[in-house]
Design a protein around this nucleic acid. Structure first.
Length: 480
RNA sequence: CUCCUCAUCGCUUAACUGGAUAAAGCAGGGCCCUCCUAAGGCCUAGCUCGAGGUUCGAGUCCUCGUGGGGAGACCA
């Protein structure tokens, strides 16, 4: 505490601060109005650059990557929203980020997709009696795919077992289109799609690159992942020569490192947790620094209905689709809800609760703050020039505090991105909105002496709100 | 059985990464529109799972326990 006091006295006079004081061993700095005013002046005239840093680092961000066997369900939405918010935050800061979707279009699931469509088609389109196997995909979209396939290729495609593969390959492209639509409805867009099946051509070369990292035993090829903290070595090529899923992932990650990104971020569902070590091991064997590969886990979403656990099952057909929720509550509300939660806590929510579109959703609170600003601006008789020509000086303490918080946005964006915790942004927006609402309630604006500068202050707040919301793929409302 | 992860008002979540009196929203009780949208503001009540430990200082770090979720495939 004594040290703090000595430090304070050594600061003396500095034009950036009006006051430096020692409180209980902490040092409080009070920024001067000149400083806030100049910073705001800059932000107002450089809205697009407000929040930008000087980085130009190239990053690859891979997320969602749900299997192309069905439309996205509500569980996928969390990772999608989380990833897209990070993407927007990073881009705002100036990072050169590529958003990539890894399409798992190889392996058993594709065979299963073909089989499922045939069975569904035989049952629903051709009215045949079918014997359902233990595992298969089902849902409304399966019927539609079967109908389309039958139209396009003839009914033979639904009954001829030798055409399953042809059917599956056609169907997975159709399903990808559905997925892309689901994402677009929530304002999520990808730059690149990498197909798993296209990677295996490169397998021999990549395997060679790993050198002693792989070995042959028992007729199979294994990776020495135990050398990198995995519990056991993993098979990468089966006895019959077919590569495993891991092989595809190894080629995929090698490709990323060869493409020269400086940093790689993958967002996986928490159920893939045990997979991290083996992928990192492969990256090391390939001669790359696995520290540049960052794997973020998005925890599971568990659903409740009327307080009871609600299990989604593709077989039972009670899957809650992302598109249904988007349609019901809107993309903005959905995104806000998911972005508000730390990604590493498992999230529980009630389906009915989610569907309630009322003021309990903070998105309305923030939009209302933005809309109030627009309304009051349009009600004022002052011209834009008059407002902008005023100086943000001599505001009362609440005004200064509001201005300060509005100018904090760049810090928040930086912090939210680098800590990978997007809820910091939603917290900030809630807090800024609360301060705006209170200020609005406490002080009359129109017709007062300080009208111009208070409106200018509001314009600044609106910029921060609008920019913050845009980081979440939400367009601020001018009217409620 | 082993490993990972989480646990904060009645409910859903925050807490500047080890710092100041733990904070919001819903739900509960009460108050405020002759005044720029009351989709707002203000009161009020209520919280760190348990036991140890490290530290000037712990919701945050360590150990053990309890309780949820996940993983332990030559499925993806």
């Amino acid at each position: 505490m004594i040290i703090a006091e000595e430090l304070v006295s050594s600061f003396g006079e500095h034009e950036m601060f009006t006051a430096v004081e020692s409180v209980k061993g902490y040092i409080n700095f009070r920024l001067s109005e000149q400083f806030l005013n100049e910073y705001a002046e800059w932000a107002l005239s450089h809205e697009d650059a407000f929040g930008r840093s000087d980085t130009t680092e190239k990053i690859l961000l891979e997320f969602v990557s749900a299997n192309p066997t069905g439309p996205l369900h509500i569980g996928h939405a969390r990772g999608a929203v989380y990833g897209d918010t990070l993407l927007r935050l990073g881009r705002r800061l100036g990072y050169d980020i590529t958003a990539e979707y890894y399409v798992n279009d190889a392996g058993n699931q594709i065979d299963l997709l073909g089989l499922s469509i045939q069975l569904e088609g035989q049952s629903a389109v051709l009215n045949m009696t079918v014997e359902w196997p233990e595992k298969y995909y089902r849902g409304e979209y399966m019927t539609l795919l079967a109908e389309d396939a039958s139209q396009k290729f003839g009914a033979d495609i639904l009954t001829n077992a030798s055409r399953q593969r042809e059917l599956a390959l056609w169907a997975k492209d159709r399903v990808m289109e559905l997925i892309i639509e689901d994402l677009a409805a929530a304002n999520i867009h990808f730059d690149t799609f990498v197909s798993e099946s296209s990677l295996y051509d490169d397998w021999d070369r990549v395997m060679g690159k790993m050198g002693d990292g792989v070995y042959e035993d028992d007729g199979k090829i294994w990776i020495r992942s135990t050398e990198h903290e995995d519990e056991k070595d993993r098979v990468v090529v089966r006895e019959d020569g077919r590569p495993t899923y891991l092989a595809g992932d190894i080629v995929y990650h090698n490709q990323k490192f060869e493409q020269g990104f400086e940093h790689y971020i993958n967002i996986w569902g928490a159920d893939h947790h045990g997979y991290i070590n083996r992928v990192k091991a492969a990256v090391e064997f390939l001669g790359h620094d696995s520290k540049r590969l960052e794997i973020l886990l998005s925890q599971m979403v568990s659903l409740l209905k009327d307080g009871e656990p609600y299990k989604m099952s593709k077989r039972a057909g009670n899957v809650i689709l992302m598109s249904d929720i988007v349609e019901e509550i809107g993309s903005d509300a959905l995104r806000f809800i998911f972005a508000s939660k730390k990604s590493d806590t498992s999230l529980e929510f009630d389906v009915e609760e989610l569907k309630k579109q009322d003021s309990s959703n903070p998105i309305y609170y923030i939009n209302y703050a933005h809309a109030r600003i627009q309304t009051i601006l349009s009600k004022s008789d002052l011209t834009e020039d008059t407002i902008m020509a005023s100086e943000l000086m001599g505001l009362n303490a609440d005004g200064d505090a509001l201005l300060f918080e509005a100018l904090l946005l760049p810090e928040v964006i930086d912090d939210a991105f680098h800590s990978r915790q997007v809820q910091k942004l939603t917290d900030y927006l809630k807090s800024l909105s609360a301060r705006l609402h209170k200020f609005y309630y406490d002080y009359r604006i129109i017709g007062t002496e300080d009208e111009a500068k208070m409106l200018k202050l509001f314009v600044m707040v609106a910029i921060s709100l609008r920019t913050g919301l845009s980081m979440m793929g939400i367009t601020a409302k001018d009217r409620m």
